[in-house]
């Protein structure tokens, strides 16, 4: 955070000098826009729903009494497994697609100037398209294309995440400290060997821990995608909500929390080992 501020400092200082007092004016303008937005929403009976408080109390009450009967718990565990499977399969696609694309997008393998710029621009463009579209939009597209199949869910996660992982990898590979790389080249390493012996080791810890964070996001996305009809924890939550069975809603929510916390613990353990 400190280094980020330091990096932004000269730019913001320049802007401040060019537009004195503009920051305060902008803040006021944004606050006004925000306040106005409340009154601009057309909604019968205002935007605050009066029955909402009762429903919230009921939902909160169910929080401490989730449905843990063996039959239901078994179903939720099955759903959690489905959601986790979608997330794992989606991440596998994301890594298999994103890593090669990221290496190309970093431009570290091409030596000729024009060829490198061409490959970088092409790969970056593809990655940008992949991640510009949200996973839910991809899911709707794929469900429209091949119906409610598991492949639709896996690709819906894998494709945008490949775009994100590829981009992060490309940046880390480019930012590897230059001195060790120059030294490897002096020992006669080819561009591919410099990648394997220099750039990848230097960026592995960051990229892997970021991929784990993305894995958490993939679990959430897989749960949400189950609303689209692919099965899993999200579908279970939505069914319980439709029935107003709040005890049954909390059980899959807790399962989701357990999955995310589990991945978090696993990733911090791996990260510690990588940085040791």
């Amino acid at each position: 955070m400190g280094s980020l501020n330091a990096a932004l400092e000269p730019v913001s200082a320049r802007w401040r000098n060019r537009f004195p007092g503009s920051r305060a004016q902008l803040t006021l303008l944004l606050l006004a826009a925000f306040t106005w937005s409340f009154f601009s929403i057309e909604s019968p009976g205002g935007i605050i729903h009066t029955g909402g408080v009762d429903a919230l109390t009921e939902i909160a009450g169910a929080f401490v009494t989730p449905d843990l009967t063996p039959g239901y718990l078994g179903m939720v565990i099955g759903d959690a497994w489905t959601t986790l499977s979608f997330a794992v399969a989606g991440m596998t696609v994301a890594v298999l697609l994103g890593v090669p694309m990221g290496v190309l997008a970093s431009g570290v393998l091409q030596s000729g100037r024009f060829r490198r710029l061409g490959v970088m621009a092409g790969a970056r463009g593809v990655l940008a398209v992949l991640r510009a579209v949200h996973e839910i939009v991809w899911a709707i597209l794929f469900v429209a294309a091949f119906g409610l199949s598991p492949a639709a869910g896996v690709l819906a996660i894998g494709i945008p995440y490949a775009g994100i992982i590829g981009r992060i990898l490309a940046e880390r590979l480019q930012d590897a400290p230059p001195e060790p790389l120059a030294s490897l080249r002096a020992s006669g390493a080819s561009a591919f060997e410099v990648l394997a012996y220099g750039r990848i080791p230097a960026s592995a810890a960051d990229v892997i821990s970021y991929a784990f964070y993305r894995f958490e996001c993939a679990v959430r996305a897989a749960a949400v995608l189950s609303f689209v009809g692919l099965g899993g924890l999200g579908l279970r939550i939505s069914t319980a909500l439709d029935d107003l069975a709040f005890e049954r809603m909390w059980t899959p929510v807790f399962a989701l929390v357990v999955l995310v916390v589990g991945i978090d613990l696993w990733s911090s353990q791996i990260r510690r080992r990588l940085l040791r």
Partner: peptide, 22 residues
């Protein structure tokens, strides 16, 4: 090189192996 030029995330022996990359 000066020691800054080693790949700090790799093991000592892989850094030595790098002398063979040519």
């Amino acid at each position: 090189q000066q020691r800054l030029d080693l790949v700090s995330q790799l093991s000592a022996r892989h850094n030595v192996d790098a002398g063979m990359l040519g």
